[in-house]
Amino acid sequence: MPLLSFEGVGKAYRGAGVVLDGFDLDVDPGEFVGVWGERRSGKTTLLRLAAGVEAPDSGVVRYAGRDLADLSETGRSRLRLGEIALATIDAPSHVAASAITVADHVGLPLVFGGRSQREAADAAHRSLHLVGAGDCMSAAPFELRPGEGTRVALARALVREPRLLLVDEPAVTPDPTEREEIRDLLHQLTRSLRVAMLVASEEVSMMVGAPRILSIGDGNVVSNETTGTVISFPAPAPTGDSP
């Protein structure tokens, strides 16, 4: 059974038109899928649907066989504090402005999930070392360089030991070498932790080495895997008034 599946999913926004139309996708446990598209092409929507943060207009999104729409809001939240981790790399401003350390910030999801401060701190240390950000432990989040911020965001997502990691734009650092290091780190984490990943980026170089790449935009999705379940649909005319 696939870990994540989209079955005939449609999503449109007022003003932006159709983002996804009749979209099918299966992601197996431990699989790495790259999602490439220009800005505002629907990459983030795809990840937010997978995390159950947004609901599709039509079709079904399943995690481990369960329709996410059948879960309560609390149930979906619990899932996001555990098995599904959405790593949004642009740190929200309240985190940047807060006085907590990086280690506290990384351990926070576990504290929200009911674990002790001690357990959360130990797990945060392990997670930061895993992504090569052990040196940042005592820093304040606002002191981080973009590449370090990406690693810390990944550590915060991985601290929950998710089965599905959704990474939204890991290419925030302007340094191409650092971007490649982060891309290689993502592949390495998929292999070593057997975590399934959907990695969305507008940067083509972040897709290098991805066994499956989805190209997304204008309601069309094209995959390099012709035998996969992703197929392309011609984009219908934008509706403009969809929810």
């Binding site: 790259g34 490439w36 490649e180 290091e181 891309r183 290689d184 592949h187 083509v204 897709m207 290098v208 080495g209 991805a210 066994p211 499956r212 790449i213 190209s215 094209v222 995959s223 390099n224 012709t226 392309s232 011609p234």
Partner: peptide
Amino acid sequence: LEALEGYERECLDMVAGTTAH
């Protein structure tokens, strides 16, 4: 459109197959 889609698949395949760091 079909030919362009095939070409897009080919380009994506080349991205996937580009030697990693």
